Simulated scan of single mutants.
Amino acid sequence: MSQGSLAQIINHDEWPRTTERDVITSQIKAFVFAHGGHNGHIRNLFKEESDVAPSAKTNATPEDRPSTNEKESADMLLRKHTLTADARRKFKIARDPFTDEMTCDADVFLSDDIRYVRATIRQTAKHGGMLAVIGESGAGKSTLRQDLIEWINVNHEPITVIEPYVLGLEDNDAKGKMLKSIDISASIITTIDPNAKPKRGGEARGHQMHDLLKASAQTGRRHVLIIEEAHGLPIPTLKHLKRFFELQDGFKKLLSIVLIGQTELGWKLSESNPEVREVVQRCETITLPPLDNHVEAYLRHKFARVDVNFDSLFDASAVNEIRHRLRHAEAEGGKGNRAVKTTSLCYPLAVNNLVAGAMNEAVKIGAPRITGELIAAAVRA
């Protein structure tokens, strides 16, 4: 794109007609992430300054219309509501259904979408491949990682899980700690042989890692490298993952790779980003969708796990209000061609926070059940 075309976008919101706007925005975001940017840098990059055109508002369905509490709804992903002791006592809940509630695989809610993602992760770990699992904060990514490890342990699957430490992981050393290929090699070495000391030289360490993987594979073991918070990986490390994935003993692949990260990972692995094209061609990408029409089933499952009857606790209006409050509507498109785009924030963590807040509000006013009005009050709390 020429500087003149870019100036027209920035200064006058006039976009080239020869290229779809979505293509241009994808390329810009990929460029930003490829040069050390993160989601905070692009959060409002393409947000319209004015309201939705009247025609767009008129044609929108009630669910699609921008909510007066848009910002509050969006913030529900970030705000933590803890179920109070008074709320647990009032509703006769012995164990908090939303905090540290995952104790076994039966606690994991499975919609058809989540069941497919779980099966794909297991197949990658067992049979090989490179997979990127992408989801918003609170979408259930960590739960699926824990579920994979539980499945391996319970079923005695011959799979060695390798998880480099990602505390403070960022894609440049100015913001935190970069995870480099040499760190991944060390993690593989010490996981397979805890008594081994990783060699210092890069080539020597590479041979050491490869030899250990081959020896372990010859005993029938599979190996899966899991990197959580993978959206914080620097581009060079993402590129190097291709080399790890290609480690073989004859025709046999020695290492499966599962990357778990927020939406920034999707931009870093964009087909528009030429720096990572070799990884993109080998990596399957799967996105965890919001709960949306599964909200009621999700809540029924959560409360059944703590022996509480959903129908006795929730009014019919509550579920619809949860979906409404966790929808974020905004205008998109250029001048004269604007429409309303609705983004769902209906992820497990957001639903948990909203319902816990509503239950706490119910205690304050002595309400016997959770209604739509209490859900709305929890947003304002």
Rank of each mutant, 00 (worst) to 15 (best):
D64W: 03
E72D: 12
E72I: 12
A74Y: 11
D75P: 00
D75I: 03
L78D: 12
R79H: 13
L83A: 04
T84M: 09
D86S: 15
R88W: 01
R89L: 12
K90E: 09
K92L: 09
A94C: 01
A94V: 11
R95L: 09
R95P: 00
D96K: 07
D96T: 07
A106R: 14
A106F: 09
D107V: 04
V108Q: 06
F109H: 08
F109C: 01
D112E: 13
D112M: 05
D113R: 10
V117F: 00
V117S: 00
R118T: 02
R118M: 02
A119T: 10
A119D: 13
I121W: 00
R122F: 08
K126V: 04
G128Y: 05
G129R: 07
M130T: 15
M130S: 13
L131T: 04
L131Q: 03
S137L: 07
G138Y: 03
T143N: 02
T143A: 10
L148V: 03
L148S: 02
L148C: 04
W151Q: 12
I152P: 02
N153W: 03
V154N: 11
E157Y: 06
P158S: 08
E163K: 13
V166F: 00
V166I: 14
L167M: 09
G168W: 05
G168P: 11
E170L: 04
